[in-house]
Amino acid sequence: MINYSVSGSLGIIVVKLVVIKPENQAINLAKYLIYQAKQEITEPKIQQYLIDLIETIIVYKLPQKTRKEIEAMLGLSELKKTKVYQEAFAEGKDEGEVEANLKSVSNMIRLGLTLETIAEYLDLPLQEVQRLAKLTENRD
């Protein structure tokens, strides 16, 4: 990998990626950031979030390119096939679903719906709705 004389943390370099103008420089900096993320970040979920952020920045910088083209440019298509990436992605998706259900249960309780009605409406087991209801009590 090319050694860029970029000083600062990954966060600062990500900010530089946002403001950099020439397309080829942005792509090269994004590749460098992805490489650094793989080297420095051991937590798969955090690594995935950072790589997704880098990809999103490049998507906005290159609106004429498809997501698949950008994945190929950045070498992400192979990364996204790895077990670690897939597990981190699935974990993030599961957390998002739980958070959405938690918010829905909280809103439905405020509307005065019974836990049984909520379970039926959300197609969740009653025990899960009861668990989420307890979590909403602790949040409020």
Rank of each mutant, 00 (worst) to 15 (best):
2 I>D: 07
2 I>V: 13
6 V>H: 08
7 S>Q: 14
11 G>Y: 06
11 G>C: 03
12 I>W: 11
13 I>D: 06
14 V>T: 06
14 V>Y: 01
15 V>P: 02
15 V>Y: 09
17 L>S: 00
27 I>T: 05
28 N>M: 13
29 L>A: 03
32 Y>C: 03
33 L>W: 02
35 Y>Q: 11
36 Q>A: 10
38 K>F: 08
38 K>N: 14
39 Q>F: 09
41 I>A: 02
42 T>V: 10
42 T>M: 10
46 I>L: 14
47 Q>I: 06
47 Q>C: 09
49 Y>R: 15
49 Y>L: 15
52 D>V: 10
53 L>H: 11
53 L>I: 10
53 L>R: 10
53 L>G: 10
55 E>Y: 02
55 E>M: 05
59 V>N: 07
59 V>M: 10
60 Y>Q: 08
61 K>V: 05
61 K>T: 03
61 K>E: 03
62 L>F: 10
64 Q>M: 10
66 T>S: 14
68 K>S: 12
69 E>Y: 04
69 E>C: 03
71 E>M: 12
72 A>I: 13
73 M>N: 05
73 M>S: 07
77 S>R: 09
78 E>I: 11
78 E>D: 10
80 K>T: 12
81 K>A: 15
81 K>E: 14
84 V>I: 14
86 Q>M: 13
86 Q>H: 07
88 A>D: 04
90 A>R: 15
91 E>D: 15
91 E>A: 15
92 G>H: 04
93 K>F: 15
95 E>V: 14
95 E>C: 05
96 G>W: 01
99 E>D: 08
99 E>H: 08
100 A>I: 12
101 N>L: 04
101 N>P: 01
102 L>K: 00
103 K>T: 15
104 S>M: 11
106 S>R: 06
106 S>K: 09
107 N>T: 14
116 E>N: 14
120 E>M: 07
121 Y>H: 07
122 L>W: 02
125 P>S: 08
126 L>D: 06
126 L>E: 08
126 L>G: 06
129 V>N: 00
131 R>F: 11
132 L>S: 00
133 A>L: 05
133 A>Y: 05
135 L>I: 11
135 L>A: 12
136 T>P: 01
137 E>S: 11
139 R>Y: 06
